[in-house]
Design a protein around this nucleic acid. Structure first.
Lengths: 186, 186
DNA sequence: CTTATAAGTGGACACCATGTCCGCATCACT
DNA sequence: AGTGATGCGGACATGGTGTCCACTTATAAG
């Protein structure tokens, strides 16, 4: 069980981190900044969160859980009941929303390889993999990660910030990927 | 023009960096390591290469130039002359080869956002964008980066190292993305 | 209420990578 | 050789990281 002061400090840390991630670039937010802003010592911070990434992951957790819940038990086309292609398109649309709403956070979650090591990626992977299997798509293992790649925070950030594309256009482009589901020849 | 000693040192640096990248993880190769191994001072190293990424980029440069040349002037289906979908598939196959042959290098080239800032990415982008335009695909701007996303080094590394997929299977999965080129409705 | 104990806290500390700076060496050209 | 300019190298300051340990506080038992 968790002690009362520990819980209080955890809340403080998350709140402080959220503010900091919102106001400046992820890599410019230092562990020291977070500790200072939260009013806790360095050791206290490191006790729970070994690095920036784990803090961002914790902050994203609830939003991701929400989407995960809707994927499993929500209404179609996001939830079960719709054809795989439509469910995939709905998933893309929902992910774009998630990325858009929490852009700074998701960028703070230490992009790069570590993205694949989070529990969330495993969930998205299982979901897409299941959709591919349901559609009878050949060789779904390799295709799954191919279809998830455009959702990498850095890709989305590039499209939004550098190219100036709108979420709607990005969603439309992603929707075209559903064409790969057809069981048709290699 | 470049002084003789400068050229000699540049060669030493690149050679040393190639060896180091080959023997340990990119983020564990420090600028100091490279300078030591190359037998040059810190200042000399920083004069040309401001960070690890730029060294890896320089090392990759020749291989990328080779592929770029073949895309522009090579035989079909890689070069001009074949239908866009076939050219895209050939491009994917060539990129997988490049990634496979220089895996450690390409991973050393500082993944994440910086990938988009390299000249090479701009080239791949222009190429794919042109193929989409030639195929009459609607909204090619957003789709271009979507189609290039699976070629991110970290994605490929994950598929190879963690999932244990073969280059052939990855290439096959990428080939399915050519289905998105059809001008057909959104 | 008091006391024991385990958990939690905070900040000082050592470490390491980064990037800069400047006196000196080396090159190219005359 | 002389000369100006370019390149070299390593010492240095800076800043972030992660650890460690003496102290404090919460909780539960007597």
């Amino acid at each position: 069980m968790e002690r009362a002061d520990a819980a209080r400090n955890r809340a403080r840390i998350l709140e402080a981190a959220a503010l900091l991630f919102a106001e400046k670039a992820p890599q410019d937010v230092t562990m020291d900044d977070i500790a200072k802003k939260a009013g806790v010592g360095r050791g206290t911070l490191y006790r729970r969160y070994p690095d920036r990434a784990s803090i961002a992951v914790a902050l994203l957790d609830e939003h991701e859980r929400d989407l995960q819940e809707r994927l499993i038990r929500g209404d179609p086309p996001l939830g079960p009941g719709a054809p795989p292609a439509e469910r995939l398109a709905a998933f893309y649309a929902a992910m774009v929303r998630l990325l858009e709403d929490h852009r700074h956070l998701v960028l703070g979650s230490e992009v790069g390889r570590s993205r694949f090591e989070t529990g969330a990626y495993g969930f998205w992977r299982a979901h897409v993999r299941a959709l591919l299997a349901a559609a009878g798509t050949p060789g779904p293992d390799a295709l799954t990660d191919v279809l998830l790649a455009p959702l990498a925070p850095e890709v989305y950030g590039y499209q939004r910030d550098v190219l100036g594309l709108t979420p709607a256009r990005i969603t439309a482009a992603l929707a075209r990927l559903t064409a790969t589901l057809a069981p048709g020849a290699t």
